[in-house]
């Protein structure tokens, strides 16, 4: 059970949140993409041990969606790397 630092409410128990999966680029314009590229966008998600940028929804709190970096091995929440 994680302790999640909501940027609006501070550290709150995981029970108050829903996970939105790995963060992605904003939904691109599908008409400008090939079938293969679009299928990749829909189905391929980053899944690796280590730092991952994720979406969370503080549904039982402020109601805000936000993104956080988390180490999926240690569960530590990380500062956003500079280059990303």
């Amino acid at each position: 059970m994680l302790l999640i630092p909501c940027p609006w409410c501070g550290a709150r128990d995981e029970k108050e949140f829903e996970n939105g999966g790995p963060a992605r680029v904003p939904r691109p314009d599908p008409t400008a993409m090939t079938d293969e590229a679009w299928v990749d966008y829909l189905l391929i998600r980053p899944s690796h041990p280590g730092a991952l940028r994720e979406r969370w929804w503080h549904v039982h709190g402020c109601g805000q969606w936000f993104e956080l970096w988390r180490d999926t091995v240690t569960h530590d929440f990380l500062d956003a790397p500079d280059e990303r």
């Binding site: 829903e18 939105g20 904003p26 939904r27 979406r55 929804w57 549904v59 109601g63 805000q64 969606w65």
Partner: peptide, 11 residues
């Protein structure tokens, strides 16, 4: 609700 909020806040 989750679907709509995610679109409005994230996309």
């Amino acid at each position: 609700y989750r679907h709509l909020e995610q679109i409005l806040q994230v996309e």
